[in-house]
Amino acid sequence: MTRPLHLGLLGAMPEEIGSDLAHLEEPSQEEFGDLVIHRGHWTGDDGAAVQLTLAWSGWGKVCAARTATRVLASAPADNPIDLILFTGVAGGADPSLQQWDVVLADAVVQHDMDVRPILPRFVVPPLDRAVLKPQQAWFEWACKALEGSHLAGELPGFGRPRPGLIGTGDQFIGDAKVLMALRDALPALTAVEMEGAAVAQVAEQEGVPWLVLRVISDGADAEAAQSFNDFVKAYDQRAWNLIATLLRQQASAPLP
């Protein structure tokens, strides 16, 4: 493959990517109603470039699915999206997690999907699966990049990256009882958020690799709302460091 890696980079809010857009070179944008898609490229210290298509979806599964679909469909035929990455913050479902810990999804599930008795709980009808997993080659690439940066001290303030099951639903979870019920139903649940599994479903159905990368903002408990609001303000200043960790490894990306 001779063209650069083309990354579709999505977050629910500007703060979850780094809202100033200063990292985009030769930026342009296209509007679809109230959705703005930004395009440009990022150049590493070695001179290698990554094509970026970037958008902020808004909260929730519908917004995330709409944005992922627009991003994929609006890419030029001769320069399609190679990987779609949804990133941002999440509530911790695993009690061992703390603020600033990093979770790379090794699987995602829509925790509010329930069409019983037609299909088992959590199963997504078009795919006939409850749990979606990223392509192994892309997952291993991201794991290696994140772990390497952490060990090299290039991610100050962030916890050590770890894999985990991320649950998505149209619900901000700030109730310990609700979280406990989800953990009872999904014992491996690591974090909860509102977009990732919807983007994964779109990507799966479109045949495009995907990753979901989250940083823990709160404990999905009674203090979650305040913790979330305070955290997001600080996260805006660090978010791009996490993304750049992956971009710097573009040369080893498992492109077709």
Results as ranks from 00 to 15, higher is better:
S74A: 15
V102L: 08
E206P: 00
G60M: 07
D184R: 03
A93L: 03
L35G: 02
R116V: 00
M1R: 13
D101L: 04
P14I: 09
D94H: 13
L5E: 10
D101R: 00
V212T: 11
G11R: 02
A93Q: 06
E193L: 05
G91A: 09
G18I: 03
L242W: 05
D106E: 13
A90H: 04
R121M: 06
L213T: 01
A90C: 12
S217D: 03
R3L: 13
V215I: 11
D112H: 15
E140W: 11
W240T: 13
Q171A: 15
P254N: 14
P14W: 04
A93H: 05
V36A: 07
P256K: 14
S252D: 13
L213N: 03
A55V: 06
F228P: 01
T245F: 07
I118H: 10
A244R: 06
V208R: 05
A152L: 13
T69F: 00
V124S: 12
G58V: 10
Q249L: 08
R238M: 14
W138I: 04
S227I: 01
G44W: 08
P80S: 11
W59A: 15
I118Q: 10
A145V: 07
K144H: 14
K133H: 12
P134E: 07
H38D: 11
A48H: 14
A77N: 10
V109Y: 05
M13V: 07
T190Q: 04
A93N: 10
V109G: 00
D82W: 03
N229I: 06
G167L: 08
G167N: 03
N229G: 02
V215E: 03
D236Q: 04
R183Y: 07
V212D: 00
L119E: 06
G47L: 13
E223D: 15
A73L: 15
A12F: 01
R116C: 06
Q249N: 13
N229S: 09
D128C: 11
T43V: 15
A105N: 05
G148N: 10
K61T: 08
W100R: 01
D45Q: 15
V208A: 10
D170R: 01
G207L: 14
E195D: 07
L211H: 00
L97F: 09
S217F: 06
E204H: 09
D94C: 11
K61E: 11
N241W: 09
L182D: 05
N241Q: 15
D112N: 13
Q135W: 09
V103Y: 02
L7G: 04
P126Q: 13
